[in-house]
Design a binder for these strands. Structure first.
Lengths: 378, 378
DNA sequence: TTGTAAGCGTTATCAC
DNA sequence: GTGATAACGCTTACAA
């Protein structure tokens, strides 16, 4: 194989084979209407000459357009959030990337910035999307942010009605790949109830254009109801902002002695019956842990604590992670989504209903049997 | 602007304007040889008809190929490692992504798996690379892994000799964007020497196809020599594997009481003069912290400890990060690399010598003045 | 079974 | 200044 700068064309191959270039074209795509012998001969010669089919894709696509057909680009777009939470999104990205690579697809990533979303009409997709270089897109963006972008995309001649698959969030009219948050919280709450806790506090973010929070709540309620308990009494709940339990802020508060002013501290003071807390994510659990500690409450002796995602560790004196948490199959989620979008763009039948992957409760030291003499220190 | 499925062509616009399609072509590219009045008129009508230039890029590129010219795709490839260390790479990725977006470029990411590198000839780039859809590439891959891939790429008609910019690692013959590790370790060592420490231990990974380790060592030596000290005596050094100080492993060892067997514990026993340790990264520092703790050595009272990267926190009782560490400008690194590759592909003059971005020593509680009565507990 | 020829939609080289 | 025309390299009726 010689390293040639001027590329080999069908015509070049045709000349060498002593046939017409259309014959070469057919041969390379193994047309059944051709003599198998000539097909093999032509392919061999084309190979030998270093004919690079992919290099001539623009010509191919131009020709195909006449017939109203189109060639696959083998490129999947990804609308990817640029906000921190590195580990969470990285795991999905790894799953997506490795699966797409295996399938011979490229990944064209577009950063979606939460800050830019107030005016999504200003968002401009890279030209590849307008050009039709992208066969389909995966998105990890909350629906309310996503919808204007998607409209932008589908109104574009270059993208049109190509497939879209949503990760993490359900997206009306499109397939999605989700974690089973109902089951995740159900298993966490069941675990606590099994340990004898009867008054639980569920900390949740304000719903942000998705139904994750309601699915989690549903799981918690199911576990409570299943034991014949009244959710109103036994399942307390606080909705809060992202920053509310930020470990860095909590650390500042505990350091300057103002942590008793935190709303969670107040709430626990008013609700001494609460012996277990479920947080929205591990960072929140870590923030809560230091807050509880500053309030003189010990985990798990006085209060059990469960995180979510199983990404950030809460280390004990020896450096072991003691945080009981709900682990999400994030990289598998990425893999499954990649499989889905590839199935869609290659025209295989894809599921239309959401694909829901199971979560796993990882039990560690931050949960323990309910201590009847609990919170005497309060 | 009507939403049309069949796209508007130059011919369509020409017909409506009552001119030839070649005139429209010239008008849209604001050819100076055209009557400015007609230029404006044609552009207006083309706009109104919803002519989408990007959609017809394949035809444009086909035509340009004749002249040996080529149109920019506005796509940058990224060779990105798929191994864990999420936060480290995510920060760079964010910088790269946001800058490329601002410049109107797309990012085509390719995962490079360390495990696959023993046989890099099996690595296949997505077709976009062969097709010439990528204007240039950014890489965050160690040179020894990268070189075979790069050869693969440059031997390809579709990529050829297009620009390559390397992040983190220098790459012979290509521009690179680096962190100033010499200065990073220099400032860390200077800080320790200023605190009165005179016998330091530098923990480093085995060099892995790059010169990062030697640059760090150089910085350490410079600081020591600057004070008239002999590096042989005052700058001890251990080269170790990635797993050597893995916090999870260390936690297991301390938990089952075997941590005294760790080579670092032995080494410190044999070198009681050492009062400060610099690790290769924060995870290593965290591992070391628990190891020291298990050995009865307190940080910073007995031993000062400095991490690297400033990504992973070491939390104190109140939840504050106490790890003194060298912060790298990772997201700025990504931004600068993106600027460089865009400059290269648009034909602007780019720096040929490496761009080196400064690091910052973030002093926290894990470093303190050298305690003369130190390590009496040993 | 294979060759011929007409596009796909652009750009560039000529004329005028 | 603007219009015809010939590529760019491929696919696919249709003809042979």
């Amino acid at each position: 194989m010689t390293k040639m700068l001027h590329s080999v064309t069908l015509q070049d191959v045709a000349l060498k084979c002593g046939v017409n270039k259309s014959t070469v074209s057919r041969a390379l795509r193994r047309s059944p209407s051709l003599n198998p012998a000539t097909v093999e001969r032509i392919i061999a010669i084309a190979d030998e000459m270093g004919y690079n089919a992919e290099f001539h894709d623009m010509a191919r696509r131009l020709a195909l357009r006449k017939q109203g057909k189109r060639a696959l680009n083998h490129v999947i777009g990804l609308l990817f959030p640029v906000y921190p939470q590195a580990e969470y999104y990285s795991q999905m990205l790894r799953g997506i990337m490795s699966t797409l690579m295996e399938q011979g697809f490229g990944l064209l990533t577009v950063g979606v910035n939460r800050e830019d979303m107030p005016c999504p009409e200003k968002f401009i997709f890279p030209p590849s999307f307008h050009r039709g270089d992208v066969d389909g897109v995966l998105t990890i963006v909350r629906p309310d942010h996503l919808c204007p972008l998607l409209e932008n995309l589908t109104n574009n001649t270059g993208f049109g009605q190509r497939p879209v698959v949503s990760l993490i969030w359900t997206l009306p009219g499109h397939p999605s790949v989700l974690t089973d948050d109902e089951q995740g919280v159900y298993s966490a709450v069941s675990h606590l109830l099994d340990l004898g806790h009867s008054h639980l506090l569920l900390l949740q973010h304000y719903p942000l254009g998705g139904d994750t929070e309601s699915r989690r709540l549903a799981g918690a309620r199911r576990a409570v109801l299943e034991r014949g308990l009244d959710p109103e009494k036994h399942l307390l709940r606080i909705e809060h902002t992202y920053a509310w339990l930020d470990p860095v802020k909590i650390a500042e508060m505990t350091a300057n002695g103002s942590s008793a002013n935190h709303p969670l501290a107040h709430f626990l003071g008013e609700h001494p019956e609460v012996t277990a807390i479920l947080t929205q994510n591990d960072a929140g659990a870590i923030g809560a842990w230091y807050l509880l500690r500053a309030a003189g409450l010990r985990v798990p002796d006085d209060i059990s604590l469960i995180g979510y995602d199983d990404l950030d560790p809460l280390l004990d004196e020896q450096g072991r992670n003691i945080l009981t948490s709900v682990r999400l199959p994030l990289s598998e989620l990425g893999r499954e989504a990649a499989r889905q979008i590839v199935a869609q763009v290659t025209g295989e039948a894809g599921c239309t209903e959401p694909i829901v992957l199971p979560t796993t409760l990882v039990v560690r030291g931050s949960t323990a049997p309910c201590n009847p003499a609990r919170r005497v220190r309060d």
